[in-house]
Design a protein around this nucleic acid. Structure first.
Lengths: 156, 156
DNA sequence: CTACACAGTGAAGTCACTTCACGATACCCC
DNA sequence: GGGGTATCGTGAAGTGACTTCACTGTGTAG
């Protein structure tokens, strides 16, 4: 996708910074999507795998809340993931209504690959950048994120 | 949507920064989407309006290339936008195959509203942040974006 | 035991997006 | 002028991610 936000002309430093942030968001998202597509997972599916990889085996409802989507949606995503042999649904040991979702071996190795890809990318992105500049950049990021969160009160 | 990338534990500064960038991308995207939804446009539709607002009246194919999507997709999006009275399709003055798309009055005022919302947000995001820190942050952003682009060669 | 809350899923629909095929037009070369 | 070919927009059909609503089966509190 093209830049979509390449505002030309003069604007305030803040406006310019915001534009750059949008640009970052798009570029980063696109690149990420590409990397995942190469490994055969979409963004939504990868989100599920990621959540499982971080939170361990979990109920479908837990996944839904964690991802901020409908339980029904999780069902569908899991159907696909299970079909690909990346994920396994087992009966919950104590609650017979629920299913416990966990990564299979293939699922685990895929998430590991994704993670290492991410690390590699992180390394490449900041090489040669002075340590303190990275720190300053990150600090700025965190401040901005914090303020953004403050502006987005709901269940985000 | 929840964070999705809240990697806990120790990691390199670069890895941490990357995580923050993902967080930014998501939070920013979500907030943006919310703001647009309040005004009754989706992200894709807003992209079209934005392009028109920047580039002036344009052919549908031009819009498609500019947005990086299929011409067919633009047709559909425009059908909706036209139905909402935000956009107008007129015969191209010299090329009878093509249509010239332009914003209607309502379309212009909507994009103006979106733009002012964006500016307001930009202002709120960086208030109280020392001017030079904003500059440093933006510089970091630009460097990162440049490197990202270098890693994503195709028609992006 | 009853009433109610909660887990997962079928059915149906929306939205953004794609590919393929097609009719209408523009353009270029002989 | 006439024929070949590229281009503009769009119908048809399909995908993936998402939603809401209705429903079954199960836990749980009174």
């Amino acid at each position: 996708m093209k830049s979509l936000h390449d505002t030309p002309g003069e604007q305030s430093p803040a406006g310019h910074a915001l534009d750059r942030m949008f640009e970052l968001a798009e570029t980063l998202g696109a690149l990420m999507e590409r990397g995942m597509a190469e490994r055969g997972v979409s963004r939504a599916r990868a989100g599920l795998l990621w959540a499982l990889s971080h939170g361990g085996p979990m109920t479908q409802r837990a996944l839904a809340t964690r991802l901020g989507v409908t339980p029904r949606n999780v069902t569908g995503l899991l159907d696909a993931l299970e079909g690909d042999g990346l994920v396994r649904r087992e009966p919950h040991p104590t609650d017979r209504r629920a299913l416990l979702v966990s990564l299979t071996g293939r699922g685990r190795s895929l998430t590991a690959a994704l993670r290492s890809g991410r690390d590699e990318m992180a390394a490449g992105l900041f090489t040669g950048m002075p340590r303190e500049q990275v720190a300053a950049f990150t600090a700025g990021l965190e401040l901005v994120i914090e303020r953004l969160r403050a502006a987005a009160p709901p269940g985000c």
